[in-house]
Amino acid sequence: MNRIISGFLLLLLVTNSAYSATLSGELKDSAGAAVSDAVITATPTQGGLPSLSPQQPKSLDQINREFVSHVLVIRTGESVIFPNNDKTKHHVYSFSPAHRFEIKLYSGVPSEPITFNTPGVVVLGCNIHDWMVGYIVVTDTPYFAKTDASGHWSIELPVNEYKLTLWHENLDEPDASVSKIIKVIEGNSVINDTVSLKPNRRSGKPPSTLQEQGYQSEP
């Protein structure tokens, strides 16, 4: 029993030495509504980054002709698979400078993983279903979070000075992102922000009625 407890304490100490601080916050737009699918990354201004350990590829599914999730965050050098859960085919592509690619996805057939070696935002589309849009945010740092439906986010990280960057597809800023330098101290720090968004949010969802889904006669 004692051994178990001391083992647990040791683990706690190790955890604490690696991550001794928690940054969290809530993101709202200027109208007070929660902002989901925003990406917060924290990059240390001094010292290196932990190297990327071998990982299973991340997964970005297509379900009901929609990317699920709408936004995926990965570290530079990680791979992504694109499982097609629909009966129809998908033809996923991107012309973002961070990674130009196209991949043909048959229903239910596992896809080859695609590795993203350049940090940046990769905008995804489907050549068959024009409304589909998704984002892969590729970042060098392992300290990142994505806001949930209620706008909440949380990152555990070591005490240090960080460049904190916020990205959202509709953020009304150049490159849709803003940054600031912060000093992270031990314990919990809360950063609540309000941002202004552009109104042109592309839902990435199919048209709401069957009448408008089943007809494509213009190229």
Binding site: H91, Y93, S94, F95, R100, F101, E102, N127, Q216, S217, E218, P219
Partner: peptide
């Protein structure tokens, strides 16, 4: 209406689509 739609995928910002047939 009867058309053949040509929509090749593009990994650049430019894209060329076409249709052939009877259309409005």
């Amino acid at each position: 209406e009867a058309v053949l739609l040509f929509r090749p995928v593009s990994t650049s910002a430019w894209r060329l689509n076409a249709r052939l047939g009877a259309f409005m």
